[in-house]
Amino acid sequence: MPHRAFFAFIMPSLLAMLLFIALPIVSVAVQSLYVEHERVVTEVETCAPFAGCTTETRVDAEATEKLRDAEPLGRFNGFGTYLDRNHLATAEMNAILTDNAGFADVASRIYNLPFYRALAFTLTYTFVVTPLAMLLGFCIALGVNAIPPFYKGPVIFFSLLPMIVTPLVGALIIYWMSSPQGILGATLQSLLNDSTLSLKSSAVLTWVTLLVYGVWHNAPFSFVVFYAGLQTVPHDTLESAMIDGANRWERIRFVVIPHLMPLATFVALVQLMDNFRVFEPIVGFSAEANATSLSWSIFNDLRGQVDQLFGSAAATSMLTIVGVVILLSPVLVRTWREFNRR
Protein backbone atom coordinates (compact mmCIF):
# COMPACT_ATOMS: atom_id res chain seq x y z
CA MET A 1 0.00 0.00 0.00
CA PRO A 2 1.57 3.32 -0.98
CA HIS A 3 2.27 5.84 1.78
CA ARG A 4 -0.38 8.29 0.66
CA ALA A 5 -3.19 5.77 0.61
CA PHE A 6 -2.04 4.39 3.95
CA PHE A 7 -2.15 7.75 5.65
CA ALA A 8 -5.47 8.64 4.07
CA PHE A 9 -6.95 5.48 5.54
CA ILE A 10 -5.43 5.75 8.97
CA MET A 11 -5.83 9.50 9.39
CA PRO A 12 -9.15 9.62 11.29
CA SER A 13 -8.03 6.98 13.74
CA LEU A 14 -4.57 8.45 14.16
CA LEU A 15 -5.94 11.94 14.59
CA ALA A 16 -8.37 10.79 17.27
CA MET A 17 -5.59 9.04 19.15
CA LEU A 18 -3.20 11.96 18.89
CA LEU A 19 -5.79 14.53 19.93
CA PHE A 20 -7.37 12.58 22.75
CA ILE A 21 -4.59 10.31 24.00
CA ALA A 22 -1.21 11.81 23.09
CA LEU A 23 -2.17 15.44 23.60
CA PRO A 24 -3.82 14.84 27.00
CA ILE A 25 -0.61 13.17 28.14
CA VAL A 26 1.23 16.36 27.19
CA SER A 27 -1.48 18.37 28.90
CA VAL A 28 -1.08 16.29 32.05
CA ALA A 29 2.67 16.80 31.94
CA VAL A 30 2.24 20.57 31.72
CA GLN A 31 -0.47 20.73 34.36
CA SER A 32 1.64 18.74 36.79
CA LEU A 33 4.16 21.59 36.86
CA TYR A 34 1.54 24.08 38.02
CA VAL A 35 -0.41 24.42 41.21
CA GLU A 36 -3.67 26.18 42.01
CA HIS A 37 -3.63 29.90 42.79
CA GLU A 38 -3.79 30.75 46.41
CA ARG A 39 -6.92 32.61 47.31
CA VAL A 40 -6.78 36.32 47.12
CA VAL A 41 -7.18 37.54 50.66
CA THR A 42 -8.27 41.03 51.63
CA GLU A 43 -8.52 42.66 54.99
CA VAL A 44 -11.86 44.20 55.70
CA GLU A 45 -12.59 46.50 58.54
CA THR A 46 -16.06 46.23 59.87
CA CYS A 47 -17.29 48.70 62.34
CA ALA A 48 -20.38 47.92 64.25
CA PRO A 49 -22.02 50.16 66.72
CA PHE A 50 -21.18 49.24 70.31
CA ALA A 51 -18.57 46.66 69.28
CA GLY A 52 -15.97 48.90 67.82
CA CYS A 53 -14.05 48.14 64.70
CA THR A 54 -12.58 44.74 63.88
CA THR A 55 -10.45 43.80 60.93
CA GLU A 56 -10.96 40.40 59.52
CA THR A 57 -9.40 38.59 56.60
CA ARG A 58 -11.76 37.52 53.92
CA VAL A 59 -11.41 35.58 50.72
CA ASP A 60 -11.98 37.94 47.88
CA ALA A 61 -13.99 35.61 45.69
CA GLU A 62 -14.16 38.05 42.81
CA ALA A 63 -10.44 38.66 42.66
CA THR A 64 -9.71 34.96 43.00
CA GLU A 65 -12.07 34.20 40.16
CA LYS A 66 -10.43 36.86 38.01
CA LEU A 67 -6.98 35.46 38.66
CA ARG A 68 -8.16 31.95 37.82
CA ASP A 69 -9.71 33.13 34.59
CA ALA A 70 -6.55 34.91 33.57
CA GLU A 71 -4.27 31.98 34.33
CA PRO A 72 -6.39 28.85 34.42
CA LEU A 73 -3.32 26.63 34.79
CA GLY A 74 -2.45 28.15 38.16
CA ARG A 75 0.99 29.30 39.15
CA PHE A 76 4.18 27.60 38.11
CA ASN A 77 5.45 25.20 40.72
CA GLY A 78 8.12 23.20 38.92
CA PHE A 79 8.50 19.76 40.38
CA GLY A 80 7.14 20.97 43.68
CA THR A 81 3.93 19.02 43.39
CA TYR A 82 5.81 15.81 42.66
CA LEU A 83 7.82 16.16 45.83
CA ASP A 84 5.09 17.27 48.23
CA ARG A 85 3.55 15.16 50.96
CA ASN A 86 0.74 13.90 48.74
CA HIS A 87 3.06 12.51 46.10
CA LEU A 88 6.66 11.34 46.39
CA ALA A 89 6.99 13.03 49.79
CA THR A 90 10.76 13.33 49.61
CA ALA A 91 11.09 15.32 52.82
CA GLU A 92 8.94 12.90 54.81
CA MET A 93 10.75 9.92 53.33
CA ASN A 94 14.05 11.42 54.35
CA ALA A 95 12.81 11.93 57.86
CA ILE A 96 11.49 8.38 58.05
CA LEU A 97 14.67 6.85 56.72
CA THR A 98 17.00 8.83 58.94
CA ASP A 99 15.02 8.51 62.13
CA ASN A 100 13.02 5.39 62.70
CA ALA A 101 12.42 2.50 65.01
CA GLY A 102 13.03 -0.48 62.81
CA PHE A 103 11.52 -1.89 59.67
CA ALA A 104 7.93 -2.13 60.88
CA ASP A 105 7.99 1.51 61.84
CA VAL A 106 9.35 2.53 58.42
CA ALA A 107 6.74 0.46 56.64
CA SER A 108 3.82 1.78 58.64
CA ARG A 109 4.95 5.39 58.40
CA ILE A 110 5.51 5.13 54.64
CA TYR A 111 2.13 3.47 54.32
CA ASN A 112 0.58 6.53 55.91
CA LEU A 113 1.74 8.71 53.02
CA PRO A 114 -1.14 8.88 50.51
CA PHE A 115 0.85 8.18 47.35
CA TYR A 116 2.68 5.16 48.77
CA ARG A 117 -0.56 3.84 50.22
CA ALA A 118 -2.18 3.96 46.81
CA LEU A 119 0.91 2.50 45.15
CA ALA A 120 1.06 -0.35 47.64
CA PHE A 121 -2.51 -1.40 46.97
CA THR A 122 -2.25 -0.91 43.21
CA LEU A 123 0.86 -3.11 42.97
CA THR A 124 -0.55 -5.75 45.31
CA TYR A 125 -3.78 -5.87 43.33
CA THR A 126 -1.93 -6.05 40.00
CA PHE A 127 0.49 -8.78 40.98
CA VAL A 128 -1.83 -10.91 43.11
CA VAL A 129 -4.95 -10.80 40.99
CA THR A 130 -3.22 -11.39 37.63
CA PRO A 131 -1.58 -14.76 38.40
CA LEU A 132 -4.47 -16.02 40.54
CA ALA A 133 -7.05 -15.12 37.92
CA MET A 134 -4.95 -16.81 35.24
CA LEU A 135 -4.58 -19.94 37.32
CA LEU A 136 -8.29 -20.07 38.10
CA GLY A 137 -9.10 -19.42 34.44
CA PHE A 138 -6.81 -22.24 33.34
CA CYS A 139 -8.39 -24.69 35.79
CA ILE A 140 -11.89 -23.72 34.65
CA ALA A 141 -10.80 -24.17 31.04
CA LEU A 142 -9.51 -27.67 31.77
CA GLY A 143 -12.70 -28.49 33.67
CA VAL A 144 -15.08 -27.10 31.04
CA ASN A 145 -13.15 -28.87 28.29
CA ALA A 146 -13.96 -32.20 29.92
CA ILE A 147 -17.72 -31.76 30.44
CA PRO A 148 -20.21 -33.06 27.85
CA PRO A 149 -20.55 -30.68 24.86
CA PHE A 150 -24.23 -30.08 25.57
CA TYR A 151 -23.45 -28.23 28.82
CA LYS A 152 -20.58 -26.18 27.45
CA GLY A 153 -22.73 -23.38 26.03
CA PRO A 154 -24.60 -22.55 29.26
CA VAL A 155 -21.44 -22.89 31.33
CA ILE A 156 -19.59 -20.46 29.07
CA PHE A 157 -22.57 -18.11 29.21
CA PHE A 158 -22.51 -17.91 33.00
CA SER A 159 -18.72 -17.79 33.06
CA LEU A 160 -18.69 -14.69 30.90
CA LEU A 161 -20.95 -12.70 33.20
CA PRO A 162 -18.41 -11.59 35.83
CA MET A 163 -16.17 -10.20 33.10
CA ILE A 164 -18.78 -8.62 30.87
CA VAL A 165 -20.65 -6.83 33.65
CA THR A 166 -19.88 -3.17 34.23
CA PRO A 167 -17.00 -3.13 36.75
CA LEU A 168 -18.72 -0.62 39.02
CA VAL A 169 -21.95 -2.62 38.93
CA GLY A 170 -20.16 -5.91 39.54
CA ALA A 171 -18.34 -4.38 42.48
CA LEU A 172 -21.62 -3.07 43.91
CA ILE A 173 -23.30 -6.44 43.60
CA ILE A 174 -20.49 -8.19 45.47
CA TYR A 175 -20.30 -5.32 47.97
CA TRP A 176 -23.97 -5.58 48.85
CA MET A 177 -23.73 -9.32 49.23
CA SER A 178 -20.69 -9.10 51.46
CA SER A 179 -21.98 -6.30 53.68
CA PRO A 180 -23.08 -7.46 57.18
CA GLN A 181 -26.71 -7.28 56.04
CA GLY A 182 -26.01 -9.20 52.83
CA ILE A 183 -26.08 -12.92 52.35
CA LEU A 184 -22.31 -13.46 52.29
CA GLY A 185 -21.51 -11.10 55.13
CA ALA A 186 -24.23 -12.52 57.36
CA THR A 187 -23.21 -16.09 56.59
CA LEU A 188 -19.60 -15.28 57.44
CA GLN A 189 -20.69 -13.71 60.72
CA SER A 190 -22.65 -16.76 61.75
CA LEU A 191 -19.95 -19.16 60.56
CA LEU A 192 -17.25 -17.39 62.56
CA ASN A 193 -19.69 -16.63 65.34
CA ASP A 194 -18.65 -12.98 65.42
CA SER A 195 -21.59 -10.61 65.12
CA THR A 196 -19.36 -7.56 64.73
CA LEU A 197 -17.40 -8.97 61.81
CA SER A 198 -17.52 -6.67 58.83
CA LEU A 199 -15.40 -6.83 55.73
CA LYS A 200 -15.09 -3.07 55.89
CA SER A 201 -13.88 -2.95 59.44
CA SER A 202 -10.26 -3.86 58.91
CA ALA A 203 -7.79 -2.98 56.21
CA VAL A 204 -6.77 -6.60 55.75
CA LEU A 205 -10.33 -7.79 55.21
CA THR A 206 -11.02 -4.96 52.79
CA TRP A 207 -7.93 -5.84 50.79
CA VAL A 208 -8.88 -9.52 50.73
CA THR A 209 -12.40 -8.70 49.57
CA LEU A 210 -11.09 -6.48 46.77
CA LEU A 211 -8.58 -9.14 45.69
CA VAL A 212 -11.25 -11.84 45.65
CA TYR A 213 -13.46 -9.54 43.63
CA GLY A 214 -10.53 -8.96 41.23
CA VAL A 215 -9.99 -12.67 40.69
CA TRP A 216 -13.73 -13.21 40.19
CA HIS A 217 -13.87 -10.39 37.64
CA ASN A 218 -10.70 -11.33 35.74
CA ALA A 219 -10.78 -15.14 35.67
CA PRO A 220 -13.32 -15.41 32.81
CA PHE A 221 -10.99 -13.65 30.39
CA SER A 222 -8.18 -16.15 31.03
CA PHE A 223 -10.71 -18.95 30.92
CA VAL A 224 -12.05 -17.99 27.49
CA VAL A 225 -8.62 -17.52 25.95
CA PHE A 226 -7.21 -20.71 27.44
CA TYR A 227 -10.33 -22.65 26.53
CA ALA A 228 -10.01 -21.53 22.91
CA GLY A 229 -6.31 -22.43 23.08
CA LEU A 230 -7.19 -25.93 24.29
CA GLN A 231 -9.28 -26.48 21.17
CA THR A 232 -6.21 -25.95 19.01
CA VAL A 233 -3.80 -28.21 20.89
CA PRO A 234 -2.24 -30.33 18.14
CA HIS A 235 -3.92 -33.70 18.22
CA ASP A 236 -0.97 -35.50 16.68
CA THR A 237 1.48 -34.29 19.32
CA LEU A 238 -0.94 -35.29 22.05
CA GLU A 239 -1.40 -38.75 20.61
CA SER A 240 2.28 -39.29 20.05
CA ALA A 241 2.85 -38.26 23.69
CA MET A 242 0.30 -40.90 24.69
CA ILE A 243 2.10 -43.54 22.62
CA ASP A 244 5.42 -42.40 24.07
CA GLY A 245 3.95 -43.23 27.46
CA ALA A 246 3.10 -39.84 28.97
CA ASN A 247 0.38 -39.89 31.61
CA ARG A 248 -2.41 -37.36 31.91
CA TRP A 249 -0.43 -34.88 33.95
CA GLU A 250 2.67 -35.23 31.79
CA ARG A 251 0.61 -34.56 28.70
CA ILE A 252 -0.66 -31.32 30.24
CA ARG A 253 2.83 -30.44 31.44
CA PHE A 254 4.74 -31.16 28.21
CA VAL A 255 2.18 -30.62 25.45
CA VAL A 256 -0.72 -28.46 26.60
CA ILE A 257 1.07 -25.86 28.70
CA PRO A 258 3.84 -25.20 26.14
CA HIS A 259 1.13 -24.80 23.51
CA LEU A 260 -0.70 -22.26 25.69
CA MET A 261 2.42 -20.31 26.65
CA PRO A 262 2.15 -17.61 23.96
CA LEU A 263 -1.51 -17.12 24.92
CA ALA A 264 -0.53 -16.89 28.57
CA THR A 265 1.95 -14.13 27.77
CA PHE A 266 -0.78 -12.23 25.98
CA VAL A 267 -3.29 -12.71 28.78
CA ALA A 268 -0.74 -11.66 31.38
CA LEU A 269 0.09 -8.51 29.42
CA VAL A 270 -3.54 -7.47 29.01
CA GLN A 271 -4.42 -8.24 32.62
CA LEU A 272 -1.41 -6.43 34.04
CA MET A 273 -2.39 -3.34 32.05
CA ASP A 274 -6.01 -3.55 33.15
CA ASN A 275 -5.36 -4.36 36.78
CA PHE A 276 -2.84 -1.57 37.14
CA ARG A 277 -5.63 0.92 36.59
CA VAL A 278 -7.86 -0.65 39.25
CA PHE A 279 -10.39 1.99 40.15
CA GLU A 280 -14.08 1.09 39.99
CA PRO A 281 -13.94 -1.60 42.71
CA ILE A 282 -12.72 0.96 45.21
CA VAL A 283 -15.63 3.23 44.39
CA GLY A 284 -18.08 0.33 44.36
CA PHE A 285 -16.88 -1.09 47.65
CA SER A 286 -16.54 2.41 49.20
CA ALA A 287 -13.18 1.10 50.30
CA GLU A 288 -11.22 4.35 50.24
CA ALA A 289 -10.75 4.35 54.00
CA ASN A 290 -8.72 1.14 53.85
CA ALA A 291 -7.53 0.86 50.29
CA THR A 292 -6.82 3.42 47.62
CA SER A 293 -5.26 3.07 44.20
CA LEU A 294 -3.38 5.44 41.93
CA SER A 295 -6.39 5.83 39.63
CA TRP A 296 -8.62 6.47 42.60
CA SER A 297 -6.27 9.18 43.94
CA ILE A 298 -6.48 11.00 40.62
CA PHE A 299 -10.25 10.66 40.62
CA ASN A 300 -10.40 11.94 44.16
CA ASP A 301 -8.31 15.02 43.34
CA LEU A 302 -10.45 15.80 40.32
CA ARG A 303 -13.72 15.30 42.16
CA GLY A 304 -12.65 17.53 45.02
CA GLN A 305 -15.69 18.97 46.81
CA VAL A 306 -14.32 22.49 47.07
CA ASP A 307 -11.60 22.72 44.47
CA GLN A 308 -10.45 20.47 41.75
CA LEU A 309 -6.77 19.85 42.35
CA PHE A 310 -5.61 19.70 38.75
CA GLY A 311 -1.93 20.00 39.58
CA SER A 312 -2.04 17.23 42.14
CA ALA A 313 -4.08 14.94 39.90
CA ALA A 314 -1.72 15.62 37.00
CA ALA A 315 1.36 14.78 39.07
CA THR A 316 -0.18 11.47 40.19
CA SER A 317 -1.15 10.84 36.56
CA MET A 318 2.42 11.36 35.40
CA LEU A 319 3.71 8.99 38.08
CA THR A 320 1.06 6.45 37.01
CA ILE A 321 2.12 6.76 33.39
CA VAL A 322 5.72 6.13 34.43
CA GLY A 323 4.45 3.02 36.21
CA VAL A 324 2.64 1.84 33.09
CA VAL A 325 5.76 2.34 30.98
CA ILE A 326 7.86 0.38 33.48
CA LEU A 327 5.23 -2.36 33.45
CA LEU A 328 5.23 -2.49 29.66
CA SER A 329 8.97 -2.11 29.18
CA PRO A 330 9.87 -5.84 29.16
CA VAL A 331 7.32 -6.39 26.42
CA LEU A 332 8.41 -3.35 24.44
CA VAL A 333 12.10 -4.22 24.73
CA ARG A 334 11.50 -7.79 23.69
CA THR A 335 9.31 -6.83 20.74
CA TRP A 336 11.88 -4.30 19.67
CA ARG A 337 14.66 -6.89 19.73
CA GLU A 338 12.62 -9.41 17.82
CA PHE A 339 11.68 -6.78 15.29
CA ASN A 340 15.30 -5.78 14.73
CA ARG A 341 16.38 -9.37 14.32
CA ARG A 342 13.98 -9.78 11.44
Binding site: F20, I21, I25, R277, I298, S317, T320
Partner: peptide, 15 residues
Protein backbone atom coordinates in the same frame (compact mmCIF):
# COMPACT_ATOMS: atom_id res chain seq x y z
CA UNK B 1 -1.94 4.01 24.42
CA UNK B 2 -4.08 1.00 25.26
CA UNK B 3 -2.24 0.66 28.57
CA UNK B 4 -2.90 4.25 29.67
CA UNK B 5 -5.28 4.35 32.64
CA UNK B 6 -8.35 6.23 31.48
CA UNK B 7 -8.45 8.46 34.50
CA UNK B 8 -4.96 9.83 33.73
CA UNK B 9 -6.25 10.87 30.33
CA UNK B 10 -9.33 12.38 31.95
CA UNK B 11 -7.14 14.51 34.16
CA UNK B 12 -5.56 15.80 30.96
CA UNK B 13 -8.93 16.66 29.42
CA UNK B 14 -10.68 18.51 32.19
CA UNK B 15 -8.88 21.83 32.23
Amino acid sequence: FRAMPHITLVSGYLL
